[in-house]
């Protein structure tokens, strides 16, 4: 899609033509926001019925790990954006360097998340322990799967490094980033 409203109008796309990047990527971004948004609102609605139990379970989460992962993910998003910008001016090696940086930070995110899951498992906490932890594992686990998919996509476009490929992969990665900055405060911090 073009960022130029005039050319977009010529294409007959109307305001859809103003969306930067690929239209189908935006369909995916909105769909994912609706899915995660619905899950987070359901979490808060169930929490409203038993605030004390949710607060007790939330106290078992590692907020520091969550905060570290926020910095890791927004930095990874920066790397992906820089990769796209570098590819746009035909600096392919630089773009690949930034893509590898984004992937490495994605792996750091998964390592920290795995350590969190491991520490919960050591306490005997699982997905059926309580409603709080059911939401916790489902929402953060589903998000972590998106991180895994994102790393694979970034790896694929590092190999098949067309300008459009890298732009779409970076958009997917930013979506993963966007979901985390909304998920983290609601699951980890609202007490």
């Amino acid at each position: 899609m073009s960022g130029d409203p005039d050319s977009a109008a010529d294409d007959g796309w109307g305001v859809l033509g103003e969306l930067p990047g690929d239209l189908m990527m935006w369909v995916l971004i909105v769909s994912e926001l609706l899915v995660f948004g619905g899950a987070l609102l359901a979490f808060l609605a169930v929490r409203a019925g038993d605030t004390a139990a949710f607060a007790a379970d939330q106290a078992l989460l590692d907020q520091t790990a969550g905060a570290v992962n926020t910095i890791v993910l927004v930095t990874s998003g920066y790397c992906a954006a820089m990769a796209s910008a570098a590819r746009n001016v035909d600096r392919r090696d630089t773009a690949r360097f930034w893509l590898y940086g984004a992937m490495a930070l994605g792996c750091v995110f998964l390592i920290v998340k795995s350590a969190e899951y491991w520490s919960k498992a050591q306490l005997g906490i699982g997905i059926e322990t309580s409603p709080f932890f059911t939401f916790y594992y489902l929402v953060t686990g589903f998000h972590a799967l998106h991180v895994v998919a994102g790393i694979a996509i970034l790896g694929a476009v590092a190999r098949f490094d067309g300008e459009r490929n890298i732009e779409i992969a970076a958009s997917f990665w930013h979506m993963v980033d966007l979901i985390w900055v909304l998920l983290f405060p609601i699951i980890y911090l609202l007490g």
Binding site: G21, G77, A170, S171, H174, M175, D177, L178
Partner: peptide
């Protein structure tokens, strides 16, 4: 993220 990383500042 929406404005700068995803480029919505253009619209």
């Amino acid at each position: 993220i929406l404005s700068r990383y995803l480029g919505l500042h253009t619209s």
